[in-house]
Design a binder for these strands. Structure first.
Length: 113
DNA sequence: TAAGTGACGGAGG
DNA sequence: GCCTCCGCCACTT
């Protein structure tokens, strides 16, 4: 099923280091699923709690939290990021500072599936 | 098989 | 910076 793609997406997100963030499109690309950013969103929505996927480190290409401002999820994501030292101004983070730039070693780790 | 649906992305106003 | 519109495309119904 598409469960296979979800697995790859979850694994990729798990590789995002603390204090860094990645965009939906970026995660899709790294997971080997180009142009499927929307699928990443679905994968997160269906992510089992027990996998402890750092879903809060995933934001959209504009550096904004993709949840309705003021919602519960929005608040949890904002707090989780702030707790790691990622500044969130008005539901926005500066990608030029916090966006994850995978090292070769990290890419190889992701590609080992 | 067809129509509906996104935790998206990018261009434009 | 905010909002809208449109393209995208696999997944769901």
């Amino acid at each position: 099923m598409s469960q296979q793609n979800y697995q790859r997406i979850w694994q990729t997100i798990t590789a995002i280091p603390e204090g860094k963030v990645a965009t939906y499109g970026q995660v899709a690309d790294l997971a080997g699923l180009p142009k499927r950013a929307r699928l990443v969103g679905k994968a997160l929505a269906n992510a089992p709690e027990k996998l402890a996927v750092p879903w809060f480190r995933v934001i959209n290409a504009q550096g904004r939290i993709s949840l309705p401002k003021g919602s519960e999820g929005f608040e949890r994501q904002r707090q989780a990021l702030q707790a790691e030292g990622v500044k969130v101004c008005n539901g926005r983070v500066k990608l030029n500072i916090y966006q994850w730039q995978p090292e070769l070693a990290e890419l190889l780790f992701i590609l080992k599936y």
